[in-house]
Design a protein around this nucleic acid. Sequence first.
DNA 1: CTCCTTAGTGTAAGCGGTTACACGAATTTG
DNA 2: CAAATTCGTGTAACCGCTTACACTAAGGAG
Lengths: 353, 353
Amino acid sequence: MTLYDVAREADVSTATVSRVLHGHDRVKASTRQRVLDIIEALGYVPDGAAQSLSRKRKQIVGLIAVESRGPGSDIEQTSLLFLEEVLRGVESPVGDIGWSLLISFMVRDDTAYARLQSMSGKVDGLLISEGIVSSPELATLARRLPIVLVAGSPDEPNVDVVDADNRTGTRALVCHLVEVHNATRLYYVAGPDEAPDARARRNAFDEELARHPGVTACGYFEGRFASSGGKLAAQEILATPRRDRPDAVVCANDQMAIGAMRELQANGVAVPTDIAVVGFDDIYSGALVTPSLTTVSQPMRLLGERACSRLLERIADPALPHQVELLPTRLVIRESCGCAAAPAALVQDRVQR
Amino acid sequence: MTLYDVAREADVSTATVSRVLHGHDRVKASTRQRVLDIIEALGYVPDGAAQSLSRKRKQIVGLIAVESRGPGSDIEQTSLLFLEEVLRGVESPVGDIGWSLLISFMVRDDTAYARLQSMSGKVDGLLISEGIVSSPELATLARRLPIVLVAGSPDEPNVDVVDADNRTGTRALVCHLVEVHNATRLYYVAGPDEAPDARARRNAFDEELARHPGVTACGYFEGRFASSGGKLAAQEILATPRRDRPDAVVCANDQMAIGAMRELQANGVAVPTDIAVVGFDDIYSGALVTPSLTTVSQPMRLLGERACSRLLERIADPALPHQVELLPTRLVIRESCGCAAAPAALVQDRVQR
DNA sequence: CTCCTTAGTGTAAGCGGTTACACGAATTTG
DNA sequence: CAAATTCGTGTAACCGCTTACACTAAGGAG
């Protein structure tokens, strides 16, 4: 079932069928109708590969999702909830113009670059959700096709970056703990250092702390973004004498915050009375736990949407200057920071720069 | 940067380059090396569209995800958590053989069929996650390319179906409530009737009830799979006189169960003491709420994996007989059914058929 | 030393569309 | 009414890769 079959059947040339298919040129109404009828009758659908080849445009964008299977970070806990929202965001601009989305999960290993290469042959542009390949490799790729980093480190040349404003979000959160709840001893549960957003959040934590004399970081723990990491951090805290314990535990994501909170509670520490716990991401579960989790909300869907739009712009015009776009985050005050069980209203804080 | 450029540079024919690229034929070692060096130096990557066209195989499978934006079912609550796991399951067999995954979100509307058609031109086979198009349309599609229904109604001809065993799971759950907790008045919060799994669960609920004389369904509510639906159902229950209330509320998914539970609790009804509440799906949040949610776990990742493998098999051999495969579900007993806060161990119940 | 294999490589015909260009017919213009 | 447009359509090259087939050179068998 090809264009030729349709053309023969309708007794026209393939050019005419193609014209009918795309409404481009002027085709006599009667011819058009005849061709359309044949197409309908034959159930003809154009072959995407042939179209891509001929148009020199695949009309496909690729999305690389990181599949972290590292020890201590199982799938459920890591990127779950994050990817799906981003995905929907991405699909929206892509679908609007009739393009498609090719997705691939990759582990950060030595096969990643090869797989990326092969993927790069099948798409017009790439959305990479994190630094799964080294910087030089990325640069090589970027020379061949447009690349937008989603939540990546903003220091790559030749790529665009769209990210949530981890810095401002984290600082607002810390500021809230210090200024509203008078926390003076903060404990930080970080994400893996190779994740750019984990680094950004941790740096912002330090930065904000530096702005408040008398407030100290009384401990760090690298929890790898898994709830088990939060649990381990909590155990470390529980192992210290009561008076050396922090006032508040700031976690680089919600899963770890939930893990930490539960472990503290299971050992008789009241949250937030004894120790406050806060997270980052605003996952669905955060609103359900007791006490409900104070956190920072990332516009995940918007993240996907903006990244994809940017990519499409760049595909359309590769000469565009490269940009870094930071999307605003929003402080979500709930109970685990020590605030009263507030009405569902979400409070918006602002940090001074 | 095409195959021809490489061929010219290496002073061989395109055929030889192609052979080197795929290791198929015997190529002299020295030639091979020279070609590989040139490829490396030029950073050549084969064009996917051209390969697809030439091979008559796109090496791409499509996944259609339902995007329900209907009233009362926002995105977060509906398929969240479901899709992502399935996705990862699907990607695994696909990635193993170097194929790709094309994904599209679709709303069930009048454009769906057209979009599906267009998608069908870009892939070798389709994974459809629900009945987003009518049965005859599906049949037409299935005539042109292999289709596997993920969690679909098993009565389609010409398509394969892979689904979780909603029936057995639901029956085990109901059986548990009745036999262990002596529930006699059950209230059912259903999903939207157009969703095949919603229908399957509801039917199983009725079926199991019929097996227990003296046990009655004291109410139904269609909650559209959103937690707000659970809330509304709970309000309906709260509006009835205390003695007319159910012993247990069985929800077609966890989000609704959580919604119902919170609304009941907010109005002074103790769960599970006054009324038990159970769900379906075993989402991450279910373990975190208080009381923790008794539910049925679906092997979502396996679902994706099996569906995809089946599709690949069918693409390889279209003559294969069509099959329906039901994947086992697992009863997850926690607290919300009335069981004591058990150790983390998960209990496996079994229902007699 | 001829004939037959086999290794190694090239030629060129597709794969299924798109589209620049060409061309006759119909229509408009002066 | 001839010339200039405009309309409607066909011809065929091209997109980049794969692969059947053909061919040469070298090695082995008789």
